[in-house]
Nucleic acid binder design. Structure first.
Lengths: 144, 144
DNA sequence: ATTGGAATTGAGAATCAGTCTCAATTGAAC
DNA sequence: GTTCAATTGAGACTGATTCTCAATTCCAAT
């Protein structure tokens, strides 16, 4: 579980695994898919947990540093995160109509990346492919 | 040349091809590679051209709408643009050490995208692949 | 348990990119 | 030249995120 990893990470840096941090982590782990800081903050308030916006942001940065979550994308409305602990690496399709994000994984893409890097003498560490377009639902809507 | 396209685009919308807009477009076209609004604004001031920050931002939005430039990426320091008029579609490698951006194009990647979309019933319109890692120079630096 | 000091917290101030407002200016068409 | 809508620039505003700092909390050594 992520709690172990996070508290170990903090201990190593002589930092503390506080109630606030625990609450924030729990809320993140207990929800599916992508999230943004503001919604997370509101969800936390709803639940009666306490944590200020500042703490939410601070904790998100810590969780990124220890690899439990990842910044997926910066948009005009802020940063989108996702937790890495559950699912493996994948890429995204973004519906330009409804904003929905679809995850996918392609082994061929991974191999292709390696090839491209080798050719350029670039040492690839990670990548992200975003495909923009229209999801099934929105294609139908458009037709009618 | 981009000037034609832009002024036509504006005329169609009953908008004006002003000195300011012309100056901004020229500065963009006369420089290579990627740019950000603030640097562009400063470069314009340097040159003695006049255009406020507001006009720069407004013009960048117009140029995006008419397809002469594209938003490449949002970073913590703002949006990075590039002009599309010159070079064709390509993707990016981003050096995590020096921040340098390397462009590349892969036909295989284009085909792969099509395949991935077809499989998911997603109507792909465009994509961007960003590979993060270390460029040749920075790999050498790290070794020594 | 008590204490001391370092880490953390929350409220709000500060920052920063980008947009908006609005009065003054410009320009195309009559 | 007159007219009127489009444009401009300065600065106010917004929204996301970070920073500040006094008050609080936690750990660890006494």
């Amino acid at each position: 579980m992520g709690k172990r990893i996070f508290s170990k990470f903090l201990k190593e840096r002589r930092q503390r695994f506080t109630k606030e941090r625990e609450g924030i982590l729990q809320k993140i782990l207990s929800s599916r898919g992508h999230f943004d800081p503001e919604s997370l903050y509101l969800k936390i308030k709803e639940t009666g947990l306490k944590a200020s916006r500042a703490s939410v942001y601070r904790t998100l940065n810590l969780l990124c540093e220890c690899g439990l979550i990842e910044r997926v994308k910066k948009t005009e409305h802020g940063t989108i995160y996702e937790h890495t602990s559950v699912h493996e690496h994948h890429d995204h399709m973004l519906c330009m109509e409804c904003g929905n994000i679809i995850e996918f994984y392609s082994e061929n893409l991974e191999k292709l990346q390696e090839g491209i890097c080798k050719r350029q003498g670039f040492q690839g560490v990670s990548h992200s492919l975003e495909i923009r377009g229209y999801c099934k639902k929105c294609q139908k809507k458009k037709r009618s």
